Simulated assay, not measured.
Amino acid sequence: MPNMPVRIDWPSKLQHLLQTALFCIAIAGVQIAFTPQRPYGPPVVYSLLIGVTIWAVIDLGRHLIPSSRETGWPPGLSGAALVAAGIVLGYFVGNKIGDAICKTFGLFPGGVMVHSEADLRSGVLITLLAGVAGSYWFYSRNKSGYLLERMREAERHATEARLKLLESQLEPHMMFNTLANLRALIAVDPGQAQVMLDHMIAYLRATLDASRSTTHPLQVEFNRLRDYLELMAIRMGPRLSYTLALPEDLAEAPVPTLLLQPLVENSIQHGLEPKVAGGRIAVSARRDGDRIVLEVDDTGVGSESGGAGGPGFGLEQVRQRLASLYGERGRLDFDASREGAHARIVLPLA
């Protein structure tokens, strides 16, 4: 669909002008190579003036005409007419100014300008071919840039959709477990059930807020993790203890939503719950140069399972999210031994 003219990007126009000038110099070099006996100055002057005039008429003039969003150029006959006008004006205006410059500075031998019929024919042909080729090149670049931007936009949407899908696969598992525990607790300890319900409401509120974006401040992630651990502590009683360590300078650092819970849930389900005496979970964050290091340690049985939906699922979910958002700059390391398990996330500090 054609759009009305938009604001001109002058740095981009300067880049186009320099590219046009280099193209014109290359054309002049080819002319000089075929006629080495003739003076070098005039071909460069005429080529630059004709080329720059064509560029100015077409690349600047296209913003005065409604243009296509996909290419930035006038569609159909209006675009062809603009190119034709640019070539015609470029030839006559460029030659006129070139004549004046060559005469003023005596660039022809003896100060006499001679334009044979062969020169005129070759000049028209070169101008026509160069004008069409240059216009098509800029047209193709604009269209390729638009398509590339659309592709990047589609990739961003696909990544966001994938991350939301991965997150949604975790939520029902945690919710069903919590509701089952809450139902059992209501009958035996209403007071604790009320506390558990309060934490659950806080957790759900934070989850709803997080669902509106793919990232949020690290402080929010720790707050939601605290609500989750409080829910688990009510269920497990003295068998579960935990610590959360977040430096103040990292509180506002953006991180993916629901990043740490799969790791903590893995520690509880496959590390602490199978252990009769239970254990401790320690979650911490620290800065390492231009990176954030997030660590989850537990003193459980050291299982290498993944939690949240089956063996390996929680860990794999975190790895996929890091790869989708950060590529090779984000990673998850996991180690398990008889003393417990250690998960370590490294991601860039925005």
Rank of each mutant, 00 (worst) to 15 (best):
I27T: 11
G29P: 05
V30I: 09
Q31W: 00
A33M: 00
T35D: 05
T35C: 01
T35F: 02
P36H: 06
P36N: 07
P36S: 07
Q37H: 08
R38A: 09
R38H: 05
G41M: 10
G41T: 11
P42T: 04
V44E: 12
V45M: 09
Y46H: 14
I50M: 14
V52S: 08
V52L: 15
V52M: 15
A56W: 10
A56K: 06
I58W: 04
I58T: 10
L60Q: 02
L60K: 05
G61Y: 12
H63M: 03
I65L: 01
S67R: 07
S68H: 04
R69W: 04
G76D: 10
L77S: 08
S78R: 10
S78H: 07
S78I: 02
S78T: 08
A81V: 11
A81I: 11
A85K: 05
G86D: 08
I87R: 13
I87Y: 13
G90N: 09
F92D: 14
F92P: 14
V93M: 07
N95R: 15
K96H: 12
G98R: 06
A100Q: 14
T104D: 13
F105S: 14
L107I: 10
F108R: 13
G110Q: 03
M113R: 13
M113Y: 06
H115A: 05
S116G: 11
S116C: 02
S116F: 02
T127F: 00
